[in-house]
Nucleic acid binder design. Structure first.
Lengths: 251, 251
DNA sequence: CGTATAGTTGATTAGTATCAACGCTAGTGG
DNA sequence: CCACTAGCGTTGATACTAATCAACTATACG
Protein backbone atom coordinates (compact mmCIF):
# COMPACT_ATOMS: atom_id res chain seq x y z
CA UNK A 1 0.00 0.00 0.00
CA UNK A 2 1.32 3.46 -0.87
CA UNK A 3 1.84 6.08 1.84
CA UNK A 4 -0.18 9.26 1.86
CA UNK A 5 0.95 11.64 -0.79
CA UNK A 6 3.13 14.02 1.11
CA UNK A 7 3.11 16.53 -1.70
CA UNK A 8 -0.60 16.95 -1.79
CA UNK A 9 -1.23 20.53 -2.88
CA UNK A 10 -4.36 21.76 -1.20
CA UNK A 11 -6.45 21.34 1.89
CA UNK A 12 -9.61 23.05 0.60
CA UNK A 13 -12.86 21.20 1.32
CA UNK A 14 -13.47 20.65 -2.35
CA UNK A 15 -10.02 19.28 -3.00
CA UNK A 16 -10.03 16.03 -4.88
CA UNK A 17 -8.15 13.35 -2.99
CA UNK A 18 -9.38 10.04 -4.34
CA UNK A 19 -7.18 7.48 -2.59
CA UNK A 20 -7.22 9.05 0.85
CA UNK A 21 -10.14 11.39 1.22
CA UNK A 22 -9.32 14.18 3.69
CA UNK A 23 -12.28 16.42 4.44
CA UNK A 24 -13.56 18.96 6.91
CA UNK A 25 -16.97 17.69 7.81
CA UNK A 26 -15.86 16.64 11.24
CA UNK A 27 -17.15 18.90 13.97
CA UNK A 28 -15.43 17.17 16.84
CA UNK A 29 -12.35 19.34 16.79
CA UNK A 30 -12.54 19.68 20.54
CA UNK A 31 -11.56 16.05 20.77
CA UNK A 32 -8.19 16.93 19.34
CA UNK A 33 -5.60 16.62 22.01
CA UNK A 34 -3.91 19.91 21.41
CA UNK A 35 -7.18 21.76 21.28
CA UNK A 36 -8.31 20.64 24.70
CA UNK A 37 -7.09 23.78 26.47
CA UNK A 38 -8.06 26.30 23.82
CA UNK A 39 -10.82 28.88 23.65
CA UNK A 40 -13.78 28.57 21.33
CA UNK A 41 -12.28 31.10 18.93
CA UNK A 42 -8.99 29.32 18.85
CA UNK A 43 -10.65 26.00 18.16
CA UNK A 44 -12.69 27.59 15.38
CA UNK A 45 -9.56 29.03 13.86
CA UNK A 46 -7.78 25.70 14.06
CA UNK A 47 -10.69 24.02 12.36
CA UNK A 48 -10.15 26.17 9.28
CA UNK A 49 -6.78 24.62 8.63
CA UNK A 50 -7.36 21.00 9.53
CA UNK A 51 -8.05 18.00 7.34
CA UNK A 52 -9.76 14.90 8.53
CA UNK A 53 -9.63 11.36 7.20
CA UNK A 54 -10.25 7.70 7.79
CA UNK A 55 -7.51 5.19 6.99
CA UNK A 56 -7.73 1.38 6.91
CA UNK A 57 -5.63 -0.85 9.16
CA UNK A 58 -1.92 -1.29 8.43
CA UNK A 59 -1.87 1.81 6.27
CA UNK A 60 1.35 3.82 6.06
CA UNK A 61 0.70 7.47 6.91
CA UNK A 62 4.20 8.61 6.03
CA UNK A 63 7.70 7.18 5.93
CA UNK A 64 10.93 8.10 7.65
CA UNK A 65 12.69 10.68 5.52
CA UNK A 66 9.58 11.96 3.75
CA UNK A 67 9.25 15.75 3.80
CA UNK A 68 7.63 16.54 7.16
CA UNK A 69 4.68 18.60 5.92
CA UNK A 70 1.96 17.65 8.37
CA UNK A 71 1.30 17.16 12.01
CA UNK A 72 -1.24 14.46 12.82
CA UNK A 73 -3.61 13.86 15.67
CA UNK A 74 -5.49 10.62 16.24
CA UNK A 75 -9.26 11.08 16.63
CA UNK A 76 -9.94 7.37 16.91
CA UNK A 77 -7.80 4.33 16.21
CA UNK A 78 -4.19 3.43 16.82
CA UNK A 79 -0.86 4.08 15.11
CA UNK A 80 2.65 2.70 15.41
CA UNK A 81 5.82 4.70 14.82
CA UNK A 82 9.04 2.95 13.89
CA UNK A 83 12.59 3.33 12.67
CA UNK A 84 14.50 0.88 10.49
CA UNK A 85 18.11 -0.15 10.06
CA UNK A 86 19.24 -0.76 6.51
CA UNK A 87 19.11 -4.55 6.91
CA UNK A 88 15.49 -4.46 8.03
CA UNK A 89 15.90 -4.54 11.79
CA UNK A 90 13.07 -2.47 13.18
CA UNK A 91 12.48 -0.56 16.39
CA UNK A 92 8.97 0.58 17.19
CA UNK A 93 9.31 3.80 19.14
CA UNK A 94 5.71 4.17 20.12
CA UNK A 95 2.14 2.94 19.96
CA UNK A 96 -0.26 5.88 19.74
CA UNK A 97 -3.96 6.07 20.50
CA UNK A 98 -6.83 8.57 20.51
CA UNK A 99 -5.66 12.04 21.45
CA UNK A 100 -2.01 11.41 20.63
CA UNK A 101 -0.25 13.49 18.02
CA UNK A 102 2.67 12.66 15.78
CA UNK A 103 4.53 14.00 12.79
CA UNK A 104 7.35 16.07 14.27
CA UNK A 105 10.27 16.39 11.95
CA UNK A 106 13.78 17.80 12.00
CA UNK A 107 15.43 19.39 8.99
CA UNK A 108 12.16 19.07 7.16
CA UNK A 109 12.00 15.28 7.23
CA UNK A 110 10.05 12.83 9.37
CA UNK A 111 12.41 10.81 11.51
CA UNK A 112 10.18 7.75 11.75
CA UNK A 113 7.58 5.87 9.76
CA UNK A 114 3.95 6.01 10.90
CA UNK A 115 1.47 3.24 10.17
CA UNK A 116 -2.07 2.60 11.37
CA UNK A 117 -2.63 -0.51 13.49
CA UNK A 118 -6.39 -0.51 13.09
CA UNK A 119 -8.82 1.51 10.98
CA UNK A 120 -8.26 5.05 12.24
CA UNK A 121 -9.61 8.58 12.01
CA UNK A 122 -6.79 11.10 11.80
CA UNK A 123 -6.73 14.88 11.76
CA UNK A 124 -3.85 16.70 10.18
CA UNK A 125 -2.49 20.22 9.84
CA UNK A 126 0.34 21.54 7.75
CA UNK A 127 3.29 22.53 9.87
CA UNK A 128 3.43 25.75 7.89
CA UNK A 129 -0.06 26.89 8.84
CA UNK A 130 0.30 25.57 12.35
CA UNK A 131 3.49 27.57 12.81
CA UNK A 132 1.78 30.81 11.85
CA UNK A 133 -0.97 30.03 14.34
CA UNK A 134 1.47 29.31 17.14
CA UNK A 135 2.32 33.02 17.22
CA UNK A 136 -1.36 33.94 17.46
CA UNK A 137 -2.30 31.38 20.09
CA UNK A 138 0.34 31.00 22.77
CA UNK A 139 -1.72 28.35 24.50
CA UNK A 140 -1.48 26.18 21.42
CA UNK A 141 2.28 26.35 21.53
CA UNK A 142 2.25 25.69 25.26
CA UNK A 143 0.10 22.63 24.70
CA UNK A 144 2.34 21.23 22.00
CA UNK A 145 5.37 21.87 24.15
CA UNK A 146 3.91 20.02 27.11
CA UNK A 147 2.88 17.09 24.90
CA UNK A 148 6.43 16.89 23.55
CA UNK A 149 7.82 16.89 27.08
CA UNK A 150 5.52 13.98 27.95
CA UNK A 151 6.74 12.11 24.87
CA UNK A 152 10.33 12.75 25.91
CA UNK A 153 9.71 11.43 29.41
CA UNK A 154 8.09 8.29 27.98
CA UNK A 155 11.01 7.84 25.61
CA UNK A 156 13.44 8.01 28.53
CA UNK A 157 11.40 5.44 30.42
CA UNK A 158 11.53 3.21 27.35
CA UNK A 159 15.32 3.57 27.20
CA UNK A 160 15.50 2.13 30.70
CA UNK A 161 13.32 -0.74 29.55
CA UNK A 162 15.31 -1.46 26.40
CA UNK A 163 18.72 -1.12 27.98
CA UNK A 164 18.27 -2.74 31.36
CA UNK A 165 15.15 -4.85 31.73
CA UNK A 166 14.82 -8.60 31.14
CA UNK A 167 12.33 -10.06 28.69
CA UNK A 168 9.86 -10.82 31.46
CA UNK A 169 10.18 -7.32 32.93
CA UNK A 170 9.76 -5.79 29.49
CA UNK A 171 6.54 -7.67 28.80
CA UNK A 172 5.18 -6.87 32.27
CA UNK A 173 5.94 -3.17 31.77
CA UNK A 174 4.31 -3.21 28.36
CA UNK A 175 1.09 -4.77 29.65
CA UNK A 176 0.87 -2.20 32.44
CA UNK A 177 1.48 0.62 29.96
CA UNK A 178 -1.42 -0.60 27.84
CA UNK A 179 -3.62 -1.07 30.88
CA UNK A 180 -2.95 2.46 32.16
CA UNK A 181 -3.54 3.86 28.73
CA UNK A 182 -6.82 1.97 28.42
CA UNK A 183 -7.96 3.45 31.74
CA UNK A 184 -7.12 6.97 30.56
CA UNK A 185 -9.37 6.31 27.59
CA UNK A 186 -12.14 5.26 29.92
CA UNK A 187 -11.78 1.55 29.30
CA UNK A 188 -11.39 -1.05 32.05
CA UNK A 189 -7.83 -1.77 33.26
CA UNK A 190 -8.36 -5.43 32.38
CA UNK A 191 -8.74 -7.21 30.06
CA UNK A 192 -6.32 -5.26 27.89
CA UNK A 193 -6.72 -5.50 24.14
CA UNK A 194 -3.63 -5.84 21.95
CA UNK A 195 -4.36 -4.25 18.57
CA UNK A 196 -0.78 -4.97 17.46
CA UNK A 197 0.85 -8.21 16.29
CA UNK A 198 3.46 -10.21 18.23
CA UNK A 199 6.03 -8.91 15.75
CA UNK A 200 5.08 -5.33 16.66
CA UNK A 201 5.34 -6.07 20.37
CA UNK A 202 8.74 -7.71 19.82
CA UNK A 203 10.04 -4.74 17.86
CA UNK A 204 8.75 -2.38 20.53
CA UNK A 205 10.44 -4.27 23.38
CA UNK A 206 13.69 -5.14 21.61
CA UNK A 207 12.89 -8.87 21.60
CA UNK A 208 11.96 -11.53 19.04
CA UNK A 209 8.48 -12.82 18.29
CA UNK A 210 9.37 -16.15 19.87
CA UNK A 211 10.58 -14.62 23.12
CA UNK A 212 7.44 -12.48 23.39
CA UNK A 213 5.28 -15.55 22.85
CA UNK A 214 7.23 -17.63 25.35
CA UNK A 215 7.08 -14.85 27.94
CA UNK A 216 3.31 -14.51 27.57
CA UNK A 217 3.02 -18.27 28.06
CA UNK A 218 5.28 -18.16 31.10
CA UNK A 219 3.24 -15.37 32.72
CA UNK A 220 0.08 -17.34 32.00
CA UNK A 221 1.53 -20.49 33.60
CA UNK A 222 2.38 -18.45 36.69
CA UNK A 223 -1.23 -17.21 36.77
CA UNK A 224 -0.12 -13.60 36.47
CA UNK A 225 -2.09 -13.05 33.28
CA UNK A 226 -4.82 -14.78 31.34
CA UNK A 227 -4.82 -15.17 27.56
CA UNK A 228 -8.40 -15.69 26.34
CA UNK A 229 -7.08 -15.15 22.81
CA UNK A 230 -3.98 -13.72 21.15
CA UNK A 231 -5.46 -10.21 21.09
CA UNK A 232 -6.50 -9.92 24.74
CA UNK A 233 -4.73 -10.17 28.07
CA UNK A 234 -6.39 -10.42 31.47
CA UNK A 235 -4.30 -8.92 34.26
CA UNK A 236 -4.88 -11.47 37.01
CA UNK A 237 -2.07 -10.39 39.33
CA UNK A 238 -1.53 -6.70 38.61
CA UNK A 239 0.62 -6.30 41.71
CA UNK A 240 2.88 -9.13 40.55
CA UNK A 241 3.16 -7.43 37.16
CA UNK A 242 4.06 -4.16 38.85
CA UNK A 243 6.83 -5.84 40.83
CA UNK A 244 8.17 -7.41 37.65
CA UNK A 245 8.02 -4.10 35.80
CA UNK A 246 9.95 -2.27 38.52
CA UNK A 247 12.53 -5.02 38.87
CA UNK A 248 11.36 -5.65 42.43
CA UNK A 249 10.17 -9.20 41.83
CA UNK A 250 11.91 -12.19 43.38
CA UNK A 251 14.02 -14.19 40.90
CA UNK B 1 28.34 14.07 48.32
CA UNK B 2 24.92 15.65 48.85
CA UNK B 3 22.91 16.94 45.92
CA UNK B 4 22.13 20.62 45.57
CA UNK B 5 19.53 21.74 48.04
CA UNK B 6 16.40 21.79 45.96
CA UNK B 7 14.57 23.87 48.54
CA UNK B 8 16.95 26.75 48.49
CA UNK B 9 14.89 29.83 49.29
CA UNK B 10 16.36 32.74 47.43
CA UNK B 11 18.29 33.62 44.34
CA UNK B 12 19.29 37.16 45.35
CA UNK B 13 22.91 38.08 44.69
CA UNK B 14 23.59 38.37 48.39
CA UNK B 15 22.05 35.02 49.21
CA UNK B 16 24.25 32.85 51.34
CA UNK B 17 24.78 29.44 49.77
CA UNK B 18 27.87 28.01 51.40
CA UNK B 19 28.14 24.49 49.98
CA UNK B 20 27.31 25.37 46.39
CA UNK B 21 27.84 29.04 45.72
CA UNK B 22 25.46 30.25 43.04
CA UNK B 23 26.09 33.85 42.03
CA UNK B 24 25.39 36.37 39.32
CA UNK B 25 28.77 37.70 38.40
CA UNK B 26 28.83 35.84 35.12
CA UNK B 27 28.24 38.08 32.15
CA UNK B 28 28.33 35.36 29.56
CA UNK B 29 24.60 34.80 29.50
CA UNK B 30 24.68 34.91 25.72
CA UNK B 31 26.44 31.59 25.84
CA UNK B 32 23.32 30.03 27.26
CA UNK B 33 21.76 27.80 24.71
CA UNK B 34 18.24 29.04 25.06
CA UNK B 35 19.37 32.65 24.92
CA UNK B 36 21.07 32.29 21.59
CA UNK B 37 18.10 33.54 19.58
CA UNK B 38 16.97 36.26 21.94
CA UNK B 39 17.18 40.04 21.77
CA UNK B 40 19.45 42.05 23.99
CA UNK B 41 16.53 43.06 26.20
CA UNK B 42 15.37 39.51 26.55
CA UNK B 43 18.82 38.34 27.52
CA UNK B 44 19.10 41.14 30.08
CA UNK B 45 15.77 40.15 31.54
CA UNK B 46 16.78 36.50 31.69
CA UNK B 47 19.98 37.45 33.46
CA UNK B 48 17.97 38.93 36.33
CA UNK B 49 16.57 35.52 37.23
CA UNK B 50 19.52 33.27 36.65
CA UNK B 51 22.00 31.76 39.06
CA UNK B 52 25.42 30.59 38.08
CA UNK B 53 27.69 28.09 39.72
CA UNK B 54 30.68 25.84 39.45
CA UNK B 55 30.43 22.21 40.54
CA UNK B 56 33.20 19.64 40.94
CA UNK B 57 33.32 16.40 38.98
CA UNK B 58 30.92 13.56 39.86
CA UNK B 59 28.68 15.94 41.73
CA UNK B 60 24.96 15.18 41.91
CA UNK B 61 22.95 18.17 40.71
CA UNK B 62 19.59 16.63 41.61
CA UNK B 63 18.08 13.19 41.95
CA UNK B 64 15.17 11.47 40.27
CA UNK B 65 12.04 12.28 42.23
CA UNK B 66 13.33 15.51 43.77
CA UNK B 67 10.94 18.45 43.37
CA UNK B 68 11.69 19.86 39.91
CA UNK B 69 12.34 23.47 40.85
CA UNK B 70 15.04 24.47 38.41
CA UNK B 71 15.99 24.27 34.81
CA UNK B 72 19.72 24.01 34.14
CA UNK B 73 21.94 24.99 31.27
CA UNK B 74 25.56 23.91 30.94
CA UNK B 75 27.97 26.80 30.37
CA UNK B 76 31.05 24.59 30.39
CA UNK B 77 31.58 20.99 31.44
CA UNK B 78 29.60 17.80 31.03
CA UNK B 79 26.69 16.11 32.79
CA UNK B 80 25.13 12.65 32.73
CA UNK B 81 21.44 11.95 33.25
CA UNK B 82 20.31 8.54 34.45
CA UNK B 83 17.45 6.46 35.74
CA UNK B 84 17.69 3.57 38.19
CA UNK B 85 15.79 0.36 38.84
CA UNK B 86 15.29 -0.56 42.47
CA UNK B 87 18.01 -3.21 42.40
CA UNK B 88 20.59 -0.72 41.15
CA UNK B 89 20.51 -1.40 37.41
CA UNK B 90 21.13 1.93 35.76
CA UNK B 91 20.34 3.43 32.38
CA UNK B 92 22.12 6.61 31.35
CA UNK B 93 19.70 8.51 29.15
CA UNK B 94 22.09 11.19 28.02
CA UNK B 95 25.50 12.80 28.17
CA UNK B 96 25.19 16.58 28.05
CA UNK B 97 27.76 19.23 27.13
CA UNK B 98 28.10 23.00 26.83
CA UNK B 99 24.90 24.58 25.62
CA UNK B 100 22.66 21.69 26.62
CA UNK B 101 19.87 22.19 29.08
CA UNK B 102 18.25 19.76 31.49
CA UNK B 103 15.87 19.69 34.41
CA UNK B 104 12.47 19.10 32.86
CA UNK B 105 10.07 17.50 35.26
CA UNK B 106 6.56 16.08 35.19
CA UNK B 107 4.15 16.34 38.11
CA UNK B 108 6.69 18.52 39.83
CA UNK B 109 9.41 15.90 40.11
CA UNK B 110 12.59 15.33 38.12
CA UNK B 111 12.35 12.05 36.25
CA UNK B 112 16.08 11.38 36.20
CA UNK B 113 19.20 12.00 38.26
CA UNK B 114 21.75 14.53 36.98
CA UNK B 115 25.43 14.32 37.86
CA UNK B 116 28.47 16.20 36.60
CA UNK B 117 31.09 14.17 34.74
CA UNK B 118 33.80 16.82 35.02
CA UNK B 119 34.06 20.13 36.87
CA UNK B 120 31.24 22.19 35.31
CA UNK B 121 29.79 25.67 35.18
CA UNK B 122 26.02 25.54 35.27
CA UNK B 123 23.35 28.21 34.96
CA UNK B 124 19.98 27.66 36.48
CA UNK B 125 16.55 29.28 36.56
CA UNK B 126 13.52 28.44 38.61
CA UNK B 127 10.78 26.94 36.52
CA UNK B 128 8.39 29.34 38.21
CA UNK B 129 10.18 32.47 37.03
CA UNK B 130 10.95 30.97 33.68
CA UNK B 131 7.27 30.18 33.15
CA UNK B 132 6.27 33.78 33.75
CA UNK B 133 8.89 34.90 31.26
CA UNK B 134 7.70 32.45 28.62
CA UNK B 135 4.57 34.55 28.24
CA UNK B 136 6.63 37.69 27.77
CA UNK B 137 9.15 36.28 25.35
CA UNK B 138 7.61 33.92 22.82
CA UNK B 139 10.99 33.32 21.26
CA UNK B 140 12.19 31.82 24.53
CA UNK B 141 9.36 29.35 24.54
CA UNK B 142 9.96 28.58 20.89
CA UNK B 143 13.58 27.90 21.63
CA UNK B 144 12.84 25.58 24.54
CA UNK B 145 10.28 23.77 22.45
CA UNK B 146 12.72 23.17 19.61
CA UNK B 147 15.40 21.97 22.03
CA UNK B 148 12.93 19.52 23.53
CA UNK B 149 12.03 18.25 20.06
CA UNK B 150 15.73 17.67 19.37
CA UNK B 151 16.04 15.75 22.64
CA UNK B 152 13.04 13.65 21.67
CA UNK B 153 14.52 12.82 18.28
CA UNK B 154 17.81 11.82 19.92
CA UNK B 155 15.93 9.67 22.42
CA UNK B 156 14.16 7.86 19.58
CA UNK B 157 17.48 7.27 17.85
CA UNK B 158 18.81 5.84 21.11
CA UNK B 159 15.83 3.48 21.36
CA UNK B 160 16.83 2.03 17.99
CA UNK B 161 20.35 1.58 19.32
CA UNK B 162 19.29 -0.05 22.59
CA UNK B 163 16.67 -2.30 21.10
CA UNK B 164 18.22 -3.43 17.87
CA UNK B 165 21.95 -2.82 17.56
CA UNK B 166 24.77 -5.22 18.45
CA UNK B 167 27.49 -4.33 20.95
CA UNK B 168 29.89 -3.38 18.17
CA UNK B 169 27.29 -1.24 16.41
CA UNK B 170 26.41 0.44 19.71
CA UNK B 171 30.00 1.39 20.44
CA UNK B 172 30.55 2.62 16.88
CA UNK B 173 27.42 4.77 17.07
CA UNK B 174 28.50 6.16 20.41
CA UNK B 175 31.93 7.17 19.16
CA UNK B 176 30.42 8.92 16.15
CA UNK B 177 27.93 10.74 18.39
CA UNK B 178 30.81 12.05 20.51
CA UNK B 179 32.81 12.99 17.45
CA UNK B 180 29.93 14.94 15.89
CA UNK B 181 29.26 16.64 19.18
CA UNK B 182 32.92 17.60 19.52
CA UNK B 183 32.83 19.15 16.06
CA UNK B 184 29.74 21.19 16.96
CA UNK B 185 31.72 22.53 19.90
CA UNK B 186 34.51 23.51 17.56
CA UNK B 187 36.80 20.65 18.50
CA UNK B 188 38.41 18.29 16.01
CA UNK B 189 36.41 15.21 14.99
CA UNK B 190 39.29 13.02 16.17
CA UNK B 191 40.72 12.22 18.64
CA UNK B 192 37.56 12.13 20.69
CA UNK B 193 37.87 12.56 24.43
CA UNK B 194 35.80 10.36 26.73
CA UNK B 195 35.09 12.28 29.93
CA UNK B 196 32.98 9.40 31.24
CA UNK B 197 34.00 6.03 32.73
CA UNK B 198 33.58 2.64 31.06
CA UNK B 199 30.76 1.98 33.51
CA UNK B 200 28.99 5.12 32.26
CA UNK B 201 29.45 4.08 28.65
CA UNK B 202 28.13 0.61 29.46
CA UNK B 203 25.06 2.01 31.20
CA UNK B 204 24.45 4.35 28.28
CA UNK B 205 24.63 1.58 25.67
CA UNK B 206 22.85 -1.14 27.62
CA UNK B 207 26.01 -3.27 27.93
CA UNK B 208 28.43 -4.31 30.67
CA UNK B 209 31.80 -2.73 31.41
CA UNK B 210 33.54 -5.87 30.15
CA UNK B 211 31.71 -5.89 26.84
CA UNK B 212 32.50 -2.21 26.27
CA UNK B 213 36.15 -2.85 26.99
CA UNK B 214 36.31 -5.90 24.75
CA UNK B 215 34.57 -4.04 21.94
CA UNK B 216 37.04 -1.15 22.15
CA UNK B 217 39.88 -3.67 21.97
CA UNK B 218 38.27 -5.42 19.02
CA UNK B 219 37.87 -2.15 17.10
CA UNK B 220 41.48 -1.29 17.87
CA UNK B 221 42.69 -4.70 16.61
CA UNK B 222 40.75 -4.08 13.40
CA UNK B 223 42.49 -0.70 13.08
CA UNK B 224 39.18 1.13 13.10
CA UNK B 225 40.09 3.16 16.17
CA UNK B 226 43.20 3.99 18.15
CA UNK B 227 43.34 4.02 21.95
CA UNK B 228 46.22 6.26 23.08
CA UNK B 229 44.76 6.03 26.59
CA UNK B 230 41.49 5.04 28.24
CA UNK B 231 40.13 8.58 27.93
CA UNK B 232 40.81 9.20 24.24
CA UNK B 233 39.82 7.49 20.99
CA UNK B 234 41.31 8.18 17.57
CA UNK B 235 38.87 7.55 14.74
CA UNK B 236 41.15 5.90 12.21
CA UNK B 237 38.46 4.53 9.91
CA UNK B 238 35.49 6.86 10.32
CA UNK B 239 33.76 5.39 7.28
CA UNK B 240 34.07 1.90 8.76
CA UNK B 241 32.56 3.20 11.98
CA UNK B 242 29.71 4.77 10.05
CA UNK B 243 28.94 1.47 8.32
CA UNK B 244 28.95 -0.30 11.66
CA UNK B 245 26.71 2.33 13.22
CA UNK B 246 24.13 2.06 10.43
CA UNK B 247 24.22 -1.72 10.39
CA UNK B 248 25.59 -1.66 6.85
CA UNK B 249 28.90 -3.33 7.72
CA UNK B 250 29.80 -6.79 6.47
CA UNK B 251 29.49 -9.47 9.17
C1' DC C 1 55.70 2.61 48.43
C1' DG C 2 51.39 0.49 49.36
C1' DT C 3 46.62 0.64 48.46
C1' DA C 4 42.49 1.52 45.97
C1' DT C 5 40.15 2.11 41.71
C1' DA C 6 39.51 1.66 36.79
C1' DG C 7 40.30 -0.92 32.98
C1' DT C 8 41.56 -5.17 30.45
C1' DT C 9 41.50 -10.01 29.51
C1' DG C 10 40.11 -14.90 30.13
C1' DA C 11 36.81 -18.79 31.24
C1' DT C 12 32.29 -20.04 31.77
C1' DT C 13 27.31 -19.34 31.98
C1' DA C 14 22.88 -17.68 30.92
C1' DG C 15 19.46 -15.43 28.40
C1' DT C 16 17.73 -14.62 24.24
C1' DA C 17 18.11 -15.36 19.18
C1' DT C 18 17.84 -18.47 15.56
C1' DC C 19 16.19 -22.36 13.10
C1' DA C 20 12.53 -25.50 12.56
C1' DA C 21 8.13 -27.68 13.03
C1' DC C 22 3.47 -27.54 14.16
C1' DG C 23 -1.40 -25.76 15.26
C1' DC C 24 -4.89 -22.52 14.77
C1' DT C 25 -7.78 -19.29 12.41
C1' DA C 26 -9.52 -16.80 8.58
C1' DG C 27 -10.09 -16.15 4.03
C1' DT C 28 -10.58 -18.37 -0.75
C1' DG C 29 -12.42 -20.86 -4.19
C1' DG C 30 -14.04 -25.16 -6.01
C1' DC D 1 -20.15 -26.79 2.39
C1' DC D 2 -15.73 -28.00 2.92
C1' DA D 3 -10.92 -28.63 1.44
C1' DC D 4 -7.04 -25.62 0.65
C1' DT D 5 -3.96 -22.13 1.65
C1' DA D 6 -1.66 -18.32 3.91
C1' DG D 7 -0.42 -15.94 7.86
C1' DC D 8 0.09 -15.64 12.71
C1' DG D 9 1.14 -17.58 16.98
C1' DT D 10 3.12 -21.24 19.80
C1' DT D 11 6.47 -24.62 21.06
C1' DG D 12 10.89 -27.20 20.76
C1' DA D 13 15.98 -27.80 19.81
C1' DT D 14 20.14 -25.56 19.24
C1' DA D 15 23.37 -21.62 18.65
C1' DC D 16 25.39 -17.48 19.85
C1' DT D 17 25.95 -12.95 21.90
C1' DA D 18 26.77 -10.72 25.80
C1' DA D 19 26.67 -11.38 30.98
C1' DT D 20 28.88 -13.16 34.84
C1' DC D 21 32.67 -14.61 37.55
C1' DA D 22 37.46 -14.25 38.19
C1' DA D 23 42.18 -12.86 37.71
C1' DC D 24 45.36 -9.64 36.42
C1' DT D 25 47.39 -4.87 35.02
C1' DA D 26 47.78 -0.09 35.04
C1' DT D 27 46.98 4.20 36.99
C1' DA D 28 45.97 7.49 40.60
C1' DC D 29 46.44 8.66 45.42
C1' DG D 30 47.72 9.15 50.23
Amino acid sequence: MPPLDADEKTERPDAHEPAVPFCRNCDAVRELAFCSDLSHDEVKRLATVRCHTHLPANFPVFREGDPADHLYSISTGAVKLYKLLSDGRRQIIGFLFSGDMFGLGVDGGYCYTAETLVPSHLCRFTHRRLDTMLGEFPRLERKMYSMTVKDLVSAQEQMLLLGRKTAKEKVATFLLQLSRRAMQQGHPASPVSLPMSRADIADYLGLTIETVSRTFTQLRREDIIGLPDAGHVVLIDAEGLRELAEGTAAP
